[in-house]
Design a protein around this nucleic acid. Sequence first.
DNA 1: ATATTTTTTGCATAATTTTGCAGCGGTAAC
DNA 2: GTTACCGCTGCAAAATTATGCAAAAAATAT
Lengths: 156, 156
Amino acid sequence: MKNKVKRFAAIQEIISTTVVGSQEELLQKLSEKGFELTQATLSRDLKQLKVSKTTNSQGEYIYQLPTRNLQDEGRTFGNDFPRSNAFLSIEFSGNIAVVHTRPGYASSLAYEIDETAKGTIIGTVAGEDTIIAVIKENKTAKDVTEALSKIIPSIK
Amino acid sequence: MKNKVKRFAAIQEIISTTVVGSQEELLQKLSEKGFELTQATLSRDLKQLKVSKTTNSQGEYIYQLPTRNLQDEGRTFGNDFPRSNAFLSIEFSGNIAVVHTRPGYASSLAYEIDETAKGTIIGTVAGEDTIIAVIKENKTAKDVTEALSKIIPSIK
DNA sequence: ATATTTTTTGCATAATTTTGCAGCGGTAAC
DNA sequence: GTTACCGCTGCAAAATTATGCAAAAAATAT
């Protein structure tokens, strides 16, 4: 679900910037940001994100992100073709290309794109599941798809 | 109390060398080592030791000793803004719309935008307080504001 | 498209964790 | 010796968190 990716981002953002002492409290803050879910789901989210509950120096309970965020979630990453796996769609508007990816794969695919399409794309920005790429002047959408077909055969 | 010191050492030794999923389980192992206490006391011990409960790579719950890095808990900035207030401004340039939000609200608002303006926006990328949205070809800024007015009435 | 499989979610409840309170034992001041 | 205080503990209850299950939603295959 699309929602989950952004919800994960919101959870991480909240617990890294504020003191939250319980899941109910975190739920409340998520709700204020427009994410509606139950405590059960949040518990499962925290488990997936490997968030831990611990005590800060003031003796309050707090939630903490893992020190190194390996956010793989056990998907096939290194084995197969991660690039073609990650890719979902591409769409153009003017000098911008918007690439949608599977949740969490945007930045890795953006890296591949940067490398591969240096001649036709001047830069990319990646979110969780979306990449925005700026196309070089006097290059076309066709040039982009051609360049990207090297790493994404399915792009046609 | 001397007993407590030894008990603390035993707790640290156990949770750093074995997988324990609950306090009852840890209690059991402490008992095997000759420490008799109740789960209530253990809970307080763990709080003092700043032990955290988290998830390992196998998806099991485990207890974890603190890393020496005691990271401060960061700013506790406004978390009580109503959601309608997340939006601050929107500005257009060519086929790009830039939305500013209150700090931290960008990704949740981006989610709303993705959902609401599917027909006029082909993709968004969100940072902390800024969203970049790419407008579909032959759609206009007016189309965008109209679509967004559903979720942001103040957008005019 | 339709069908099948997988993932996500809420509900209700179970399991676990936290805490208020009172008692105990030790210590220091009087 | 008595009193006051303080940290530690268990008990019981409250609070919080985790999960089995069924339904809904998405993803994927046909």
